[in-house]
């Protein structure tokens, strides 16, 4: 049996009194790519943000249920969200390198603020940039501003930044929706390689993308988990009619 990394049990979440997620139960194995698909507003992003406790940064956010990361409930009272976020990294929809910081500092800042020594820092930055397939393009211009890179490079910079602190899970919220096809395919290749080191959970609106890169796919619809299966099964022989309707584009 494959090792389970994340267990989501009866997770409900919302803002003020609106309920966005209803009783989600999901298990995510280690070193796999899991895709979340579903129409806009179905709670994919909220689900993702619950996994590293970013959801509670929004005013009025509420969460019920528990999420076990390596058998530890991350919603326990004594758990510091800051430590959870070090284990569970995140890449956002829009590339968002820190303005005013150099390429090097963008990757290094997380480590620096965690108190990593300067000697080790350079190596760690190099490894993460290599992992993010960006090293060859930026190794001569590390002093340049992070924002001076192109969109695709910026997004890979953000991935490198997330990888630098050695998380065990990386969450990606539509990482390629703001990018051109070439950058997209680069990032897809990257994700496929990344699963040797980390577990990737990715939200995507692109069915082909989900089928290309993921091992398992979860289909969410208006806050409920409709189906969670091996990707090959979901896209060839889904057991729910709703899933079939959605992935074939006959939705509604």
């Amino acid at each position: 049996m494959e090792k389970l990394l994340v267990k989501v049990q009866n997770l409900s979440a919302g803002f003020f009194s609106t309920i966005v997620l209803k009783e989600i139960n999901l298990e995510i194995p280690a070193h796999k790519v899991v895709a979340l698909i579903g129409p806009s507003g179905c709670g994919k992003s909220t689900f993702l943000r619950c996994l590293n406790r970013m959801h509670e940064e929004v005013p009025g956010a509420e969460v019920k249920g528990q999420i076990l990361l390596e058998d530890q409930n991350i919603y326990d009272k004594f758990i510091d969200p800051v430590l959870v976020r070090r284990k569970v990294g995140m890449v956002f929809q829009k590339p968002n390198p820190f303005p005013g910081l150099s390429i090097f500092d963008n990757v290094a800042v997380g480590l620096k603020l965690m108190g990593v020594k300067k000697k080790v820092l350079y190596e760690r930055v190099e490894t993460s940039l290599k992992q993010a397939a960006l090293w060859d393009e930026v190794k001569d211009i590390l002093k340049r501003q992070g924002t001076s890179l192109s969109g695709g490079q910026q997004q890979r910079l953000c991935i490198a930044r997330a990888l630098a602190i050695n998380p065990s899970v990386v969450l990606m919220d539509e990482p390629t929706s703001a990018l051109d096809p070439i950058s997209t395919s680069r990032i897809e290749n990257l994700i496929r390689r990344l699963k040797e080191q980390v577990t990737v959970i990715i939200v995507t609106h692109n069915m082909q993308q989900a089928s290309r890169i993921s091992d398992k796919t979860a289909f969410l619809l208006s806050g409920e988990l409709v189906e969670y299966e091996k990707t090959s099964k979901i896209f060839t022989n889904p057991s729910e009619r709703k899933t079939e309707a959605y992935i074939t584009g006959r939705f509604g």
């Binding site: 970013m54 940064e57 800051v82 976020r85 990294g89 956002f92 968002n96 820190f98």
Partner: peptide, 14 residues
Amino acid sequence: PNHIREAGLALGIP
């Protein structure tokens, strides 16, 4: 912009 702040928080920085 808020997403810069979030990016920082998501890195596990107080």
